[in-house]
Structures are given as C-alpha cells and as structure tokens.
Design a protein around this nucleic acid. Structure first.
Length: 426
RNA sequence: GCGGCUGUAGCUCAGCCGGUUAGAGUGCCAGGUUGUGGCCCUGGAGGUCGUGGGUUCGAGUCCCAUCAGCCGCCCCA
C-alpha cells in the first residue's frame, strides 16, 4: 500500500497524483478510440463469486484474499481481480444479450493479501478491458493491440509480449495426463518445489527456475502440441492477425496464468525494468466464465494492466508523462491588512473569470510572497500594498520578463483578460 | 507463507571498539535590500534516533520482540 501525493516526491516521482491522472487519461482515451465503455463495480463482492470463478486451488483464492464476515453472517471479499465482478454485474443487469458484443473497461482498486515489495502492493490499481460475447480470434487481436497501443502511447517502449494457448476443457486434460505421466518417473530429479507443484498445480512445474527442473522437463509434452483442432485453429488465426498488425511477440509454451477460468489465448506483457515483479499486464480468454457465473454459455476475453508497475517502469526509463498544468496564472501578493482584505475580493473575481489564482494566507513579507509565487511558477504577480490601495490599482509583475505596470483593480475584476498584458507564446 | 537487508531533521544521508550538549547537505523561515522571485552571504526553527522491552554506571550504537520499507522465493498487475 502506498499514498499518492499532491507534490512530486524526490525519490519516487511515480507517487505524484498528476502522473496517475495522466496515465488514467491515456487509458480512457485509448479505450474510447477502441470503442470500450466504462464500468464501475463495488470494491467488495460475495466471496463465492471469486472462489467459484478463479478456482479453489489457485494461490489467490487459497491465501491471498481479504475476506471477512459481515454482520449478516455473509462472507465478503475485497476484489482480488477485475474480471469476475464485471461479468457478475453485466449478468445481473441483463446486459449480456445473445448475438451481440459488449466491450467495457474499468479502472479498479484490487486487493491481495501478500508480502509487499516494490511493484507489489496489497492494495493496488488495475486498468483493464473485457469483451463479452465474441469468440472470433480477431477480438483476441484487438484486445492485445489495445494493450500494446496503450504501452506505446504512454512511453513504455520496452514491453515484451508473451503468448500462449492454454487450451480448453476438451484438450487440456489430455495434455495434463501426458505431462503427469512424463513427470512422475522424474520426480526424484526435481526440486522440492516442483514435487509440490506436481500435486497442486502441475502446469507450473514447467516454468520453474531451478536448473534441475529445467533439465528433467526439457522434453516434457507441450500444451501447444495437444490442442484440439478448434483451439489450434483459433490460435493460428490469432497469430496471423497479430503478424498482420505488426505486433511482435514471443511464443511461450510455458506461460500459465493464475486463474482457472482461462481458456485458449493467454498473454502477458513484461518489462525488464522491474526485477521480480516484471509483469505489467496480462490476460486471456475465458469462454466458460459467464456460464459458471450463472449465464448462458458466452465467450469472453480481457486483460488487466498494473497502474503502479507502469508508473514505476516509466520512472526507471526516465520518461516523464505529460501532466496537466497546475501552475497559477496570477499570484496575488497583498501587504498589510487593508490590501489583504481587498485581495480576498480580487482573488475571487479572477477565479470567477476562470483564471487560476493563488495567494498567501500567512501574512508573510512581500519578499516571501514573491518567492512563493516564483516557486509555483506563477505567470504574473499582482502586488497590492498601501500605495496601490490609495490609488485603486495593483502593480502587475510579469515573472518571466520582470517588467511591471499598474492596472486598476476594478478593471482586473471586470475583465482580467483585457487587463493582463498579452501572453507571449511560451 | 519462507529467507535476507535497512529504519537517525520534511528529503538524501554521516555518526569510530557503547561515553556525556546527535551532525552535514538540501528544503523551510527570517535578515542582508524600511514593498519585489530565481544567484550569493548570514542567522534561525525543525529530531519520541521506527516502536516496546532488555543488558549496562552509561545505548543512536549491543540483545530480543514488534511494525514498516526494500531485495529474493512463491505468486501475480
């Protein structure tokens, strides 16, 4: 968990709220271009939604959920992922219709009970999309290209795409049988970790980092070699779409995702900037999920992107997102009680005209106020002291050129645009 | 959930084999300019030494616990 701050911290620029706004704006924009609409769902759901959809045996369900019992005795869980709640909401509101396609995006806070470290937080944010109702591999290509295009736009230029197919309920058991048969006689040669995986999650044996496991399983049966004709065809078409779009990827037969509901297409984007937490986005197809949530059999596909990880990658790459302007146009510097009282009205009048205006409330010296204005990068300072009060004017200083002139306060309040000197193109 | 490292001023960090008033840089405030920013000079404020116990005549320093952060594993965004 971490705070997102109003000013840019020296050490971790990515904690600056302005960067979060910029990244979210870029995501919303790319979603608009691709035709996705926003959905927002509650942060907590019935626990059963996740145990049913993600799968009992997965790490997330087994040990990473924030679960509690509410006063009515129901088991509730802070959402550990974005897809299941979206499917639940769309079903509940009857938005999933036959022979139609629904495309949504979300920006959501996600909770996982695990040990934090850089890039991995118990509370973090994911942006994601879901497409419900289409099984065409062209949709897989669209979803992947949306993610890639997002990375490109925000400046994550080193993202690598890994692709795999995890098959479907028709072909997966075949492969699993073959894998178990292959692995069993070799168990003694493998690491304790992999002996555990053999029982709990055999697919994960394949991407072990232990050299012993690598050697023992080098010739293990690959998922891709056991795909049924439907899955195989789907995968081939997706690959040809991706190459048509010029999207580069590496085939990773060992890529396995952490949720049980995935079928066919699985993909991940990784960035070498991140160390152990190098996955910045991942997703896949889930053709059985809608049905298991109580709907009619309906295909679906989506992905999630980690906001924190993207922002950290950008820090590492030393790339600054273009953030919105938070600098004031005018800083009103009043000296003395009479001028300060008058300044309250001037500040209000300027703001009414849509001019970003700041002022000082500490009764500091003019020098200190000038320094504050300079630090805020204010374009102009309106100086009001006893001299000015006596004549109903303010001294207007151009902080770039250092030139100053006098302007009637009344005029500033009525029409500041005409009173302020024309702004030179910056 | 497992293993390792680190917690001293707002920030980045010094602080010797335990020794008396805990330092620097930067930032902040003020003055030098009796009403004018950025540069420079001078001064000032600011610290429960993460927290709680223990050892000791004496603990920022050693020991234990705890919390937080970081690195790796597991897993994942």
């Amino acid at each position: 968990m971490h705070d997102v701050l109003p000013l840019q911290p020296d050490r971790d620029p990515w904690l600056h709220a302005a960067r979060w706004r910029a990244l979210e704006a870029a995501f919303r924009d790319i979603c608009r271009i691709y035709g996705y609409r926003e959905i927002r769902t509650p942060v907590m759901e019935s626990t059963e939604l996740f145990t049913r959809s993600i799968g009992d045996g997965t790490d997330i369900v087994a040990k990473e959920m924030f679960t509690f019992t509410d006063r009515g005795g129901r088991s509730m869980t802070l959402r550990p992922e974005g897809t299941a709640p979206v499917v639940r909401a769309l079903l509940e509101h009857g938005l999933i219709a036959e022979a139609s396609t629904l495309k949504v995006y979300y920006i959501a806070t996600i909770y996982r009970y695990e040990h934090g470290q850089r890039g991995r937080y118990r509370e973090h944010q994911q942006t994601g999309v879901e497409v419900i109702g289409a099984q065409d591999s062209a949709v897989d290509a669209e979803v992947i290209s949306l993610a890639i295009e997002f990375f490109r736009r925000v400046g994550i230029l080193d993202a690598e795409l890994k692709l795999n197919s995890v098959g479907c309920p028709a072909c997966r058991p075949e492969h699993l049988k073959a894998l178990l048969a292959f692995a069993e006689p070799r168990l003694d040669a493998m690491s304790p970790d992999n002996q555990r995986r053999f029982r709990e999650n055999p697919l994960r044996m394949l991407d072990s980092k232990d050299p012993r496991d690598h050697a023992a399983l080098a010739d293990a049966p690959k998922l891709l070699d056991h795909l049924c004709t439907e899955c195989s065809l789907h995968f081939e078409r997706l690959r040809s779409h991706l190459s048509a779009l010029g999207i580069r990827y590496t085939l990773d037969p060992l890529l396995v995702r952490g949720f049980d509901y995935y079928t066919k297409t699985a993909f991940e984007s990784i960035s070498p900037q991140l160390g152990a937490q190098n996955v910045i986005g991942g997703g896949g197809r889930y053709d059985g999920l809608v049905e298991s949530c109580g709907g009619k059999p309906t295909p679906g596909i989506g992905f999630g992107i980690g906001t924190e990880r993207c922002l950290i990658v950008l820090d590492q790459l030393n790339r600054a997102l273009e953030v919105d302007d938070e600098t004031p146009s005018v800083f009103v510097a009043a000296v003395g009680p009479e001028a300060s009282a008058r300044a309250v009205r001037l500040v209000h009048a300027l703001r009414r005209q849509g001019i970003a205006t700041e002022t000082d409330y500490l009764g500091r010296s003019l020098k200190a106020q000038m320094r504050a204005a300079s630090r805020l990068n204010a374009r102009w300072v309106a100086i009001m002291g006893d001299d000015e009060m006596a004549r109903g004017v303010a001294t207007l200083k151009d902080m770039q050129s250092g030139e100053q002139c006098e302007v009637a306060i009344d005029q500033l309040e009525k029409s500041a645009a005409s009173a302020l000197p024309p702004q030179p193109p910056s």
